[in-house]
Each structure stands twice: as structure tokens, then as C-alpha cells.
Computed example of a mutant assay.
Amino acid sequence: MSTRLPARVVRLLLGLALFGASVALMVRADLGLSSWDVLHQGLAERTGLPLGWVVNGVALVVLLLWVPLRQRPGIGTVANVALVGLALDGVLAVLPPVHAPATRFGLLLLGVLLNGVATALYLGARFGPGPRDGLMTGLAARGLPLGRARTLIELGVLATGWLLGGTVGIGTVIYALSIGPLAQFLIPRLAVPAPRRPAQTGVTSPCPA
């Protein structure tokens, strides 16, 4: 077994747990969420279900949309469906609501930063994208430009979540502007290095996991 495999698994599980924790921090900040989490919160408000259950349920529904797009989930995709919501509800259970404006803003910034770290860890594990990212890339593979696919999805879920009662605010803007640069900076630094391909010498060797 390649020594890289345990490191990849640790990064995957830690990244997904931190992702759920980061969303919980932004929920407690109550200053605005990412577009998908606005939808999750709105659905939770309407259904009365725990937020983490809604997160996992929406992820499962989105994963089913991969079928007509001929997308294949990886281990990380399935783990994303199962674990993020559990971590989210776990942190919400021990982190009480806060009211001081400075504390709320601090939680927001910490949540956004932690989300960037979590994204870099689970994507850097190279076990497959999350269901929502896979939906975007699946639409792009079917002919819709990648940028347009992302914009349509993000705006659609944001508008739906806001109409359902999800929180839109300065945190939504901060997240949208910062998560891309954060992920771009952190992924090369936190990812497990990809295995090197053997030199073309005429002798083959097994590729590490």
C-alpha cells in the first residue's frame, strides 16, 4: 500500500469535518452564508429539520442529478454526502448563538478561512469532488460553459434560499469574493502530491495510490 493513501484519507476526513464546522461558524455569525448554505438554511427553516440533515439531503439529491450527466462519484463524493452535515450539526450543538457584533464578525471571518482550509484539504486528497462541484463540471462537460454553469447554479440556489428565508448578508459577499483565492492559495500547499509517472524506459512499475 502506498504511504500516500493514509495521508489522503486523513486529509479527506479532516477536510469534510472542518467544512461542516466552518459552516456552523458562519451560521452562528448570522451575517450571511454561501449561496448553497442560504438554500440549506431556508429549507431547514421551512421543514423544521436540523440544518445538517438538510445539507446531507440536498447533497444526495444533487448527486442523483449526476446520473443523466454521466458523472461518476468518487469516494470523496460519497463521504461528502455523509459527513459534512454531521459535523455541522455537531458544532452547532456545542456552539451557542452569539450577539456581540465584533464576535459575530470574528466568527464569520474564521468560518470563511476555515472553509478555505477545508476545501483545500478534501480536494487535495484527490478522492473526487463534492456533489455540488460535480454538478457544475457535469453541466460544463455537456456543453454549457463552465463559468456560466457556475453562475447559473450559484444565483439559482441563492435566490431560492433567500426566498425560503435563508440569511443573505455581508458574509455572503465576503465568502463569494474570498473562497476562490483562498482555495487557489491553499490547495497546492495542503494537497497530497500526485504520484510521479514512471520514466519511459520500457520497464513498467506499479503506480502508488
Rank of each mutant, 00 (worst) to 15 (best):
V91Q: 08
L139E: 01
A149G: 10
V192H: 08
G156N: 05
L43S: 07
P131C: 00
F185E: 01
P198I: 02
D133W: 06
A21Y: 04
R46C: 12
P96V: 10
L43Q: 09
V91A: 06
L164R: 11
F105A: 15
A102Q: 13
P181N: 09
L190I: 03
L121P: 00
L182E: 12
L65N: 11
Q41E: 15
P188D: 14
L107V: 05
L155I: 12
A24E: 05
L186M: 14
R4A: 15
G180S: 05
G52M: 10
D30P: 01
G180Y: 04
L123R: 13
A125P: 00
G138E: 01
V62H: 01
P6G: 10
R46H: 12
T103G: 12
A199C: 07
M26G: 01
R132L: 12
G166I: 01
L190V: 08
S35Y: 06
P6M: 13
V10D: 00
G20I: 07
V81Y: 11
L16Q: 08
I153G: 07
A102R: 14
D37W: 02
F185H: 14
V203K: 11
S178V: 13
V9H: 09
V54H: 07
G15C: 05
V9G: 10
V117L: 14
I187Y: 03
V23C: 05
L18S: 03
L114S: 10
L95I: 07
V81D: 03
G202W: 07
A44N: 06
